[in-house]
Design a protein around this nucleic acid. Structure first.
Lengths: 255, 255
DNA sequence: CGCACAATTGAAGCAGCTCAAAATAAGTGG
DNA sequence: CCACTTATTTTGAGCTGCTTCAATTGTGCG
């Protein structure tokens, strides 16, 4: 059940056996949430943390005049509201993209756990720092990259993050986002996302259909998005790197 | 010397006396750095953390074709490279705006300190989460707000952060940035920053000259930038709120 | 004085936006 | 299985906030 949490946290280094054990009893119950529902909302003071066990979510903020900015997509293994644990009040919302299962970790269990198990505490801290790195990278993209580059970059990022969790398939992965959501994530209009996706498709880099991303040319996509994966700090590759995996003879693949 | 670090960390709640004491001996030496110098650079694996004691700095990343994105401005009290402590390698650089004094905290002292003193560890973690919130807010601005709004928002944010450190003067503060740096921080060209600043000035909201920001109309500026300070989590106001302070009879003040 | 850097202003161009509508897909109830 | 509804994708066309290029004006300083 919280295998996923373990896998997530071990991205940053192995945990000692006793801490692993402690981790497995963190998730007290599982909550099923429908698509397009808030997991936590801005202003909430949650009494527990939520780990995504199945499905996808995103952090967002609403602005005046109905605009929305999505800050990140969250995937299985991610703890979405550590902010609530440490700072009390959420300053943004997290909502589901699809029907989602979340594991619930009560703060009054998490607190003693982080005090007793320093590796767990450290790994959670590291996890929030990776979140931070993801925000920064998005910031760079929106601030200084073209629409085409931003999309390429995002698709690379999500690929590597999903791959680290074992959720990719030979250079393709599930990402049930609409173009409107992509736009809100990248600071673009739906229309422009559509046109840029078309260009990426025409360039033979990717296909995005029915909530599934197929990367036809990993290196090309990375180059298009100026993607440098180091900010994800996936030092311990739990899976082979994408370059060495999804070479399919027919399609143009990475090298 | 590390009074500032204490003040910074106590933004999130008081520390017990013994932890306060431990904190004062963290900074082992002080390093003076000239203007426009990197404090840490992308790719570095620093062996210590740096706290700003005097002066200003900013996080940034360089992109292809010489573009630069500044992710945040850092002020006295900020620890600029906790990322290096927890993740090893820096994925971005931090450079000074002005001549700066930084306190150096060796990792091999910080590590046992965070293990022995849970409140310090927690406060540092909280501090990184506030950084995160700042990145997110910038992200929202660049993604979905106009140039005018972004500038207003940034100036509000820096005001409150400096105020929490006791570094404001009746609605004005030192911020030694050039318009080019502002642009790189907000995803704008220098030219457009200049024009937007002119509009803000003409609207009677602010003046920015010689590295000093004067806020003439706090509420107006906040409204212009859709500024909601909650993301800074400055629950414990160490100074009076700006609204109740800088009412100057002549100029247009908030209310 | 004169260099170098920052701020300012003008003018033209464009990346991406908005408005609008058509085409496609995905239910849903009968 | 169809008729109807609603959401998403796609395409067209005109518009604009911001960019780029270029030149001018401070302004601090050796």
């Amino acid at each position: 059940m919280s295998n996923l949490l373990l896998r997530h946290l071990e991205q940053f280094g192995p945990l000692p056996p006793d801490e692993k054990r402690a981790l497995t009893s963190l998730v007290q119950r599982v909550h099923e949430i429908g698509a397009d529902q808030d997991i936590v909302a801005e202003g909430d003071r949650p009494g527990d943390c939520k780990v995504i066990l199945e499905g996808f979510a995103f952090r967002y903020k609403l602005l005046g005049s109905g605009r929305r900015q999505i800050m990140s997509f969250q995937i299985p293994g991610d703890v979405v509201d550590l902010q609530g644990f440490l700072l009390g009040e959420m300053d943004h919302s997290v909502a589901t993209l699809t029907a989602t299962k979340v594991g619930v970790i009560p703060h009054n269990l998490l607190l003693p756990t982080t005090e007793r198990y320093p590796f767990i505490a450290r790994a959670l801290w590291q996890s929030t720092l990776i979140d931070s790195a993801v925000f920064r990278e998005r910031l760079v993209g929106i601030g200084r990259r073209s629409a085409y580059q931003r999309i390429a970059h995002l698709l690379c990022e999500v690929f590597l993050r999903l791959q680290a969790m074992g959720l990719t398939n030979d250079g393709s992965y599930e990402l049930p986002v609409t173009q409107a959501e992509l736009g809100d994530s990248l600071g673009l209009s739906t229309v422009h996302v559509n046109r840029s996706l078309k260009t990426l498709r025409d360039d033979g880099l990717i296909t995005l259909r029915d909530g599934r991303v197929v990367i036809h040319h990993w290196e090309g996509l990375g180059a298009a998005g100026e993607f440098d994966p180091r900010y994800l700090h996936l030092t311990r590759r739990l899976n082979p790197a994408p370059q060495s995996r999804e070479r399919e003879t027919g399609s143009s693949d990475a090298h």
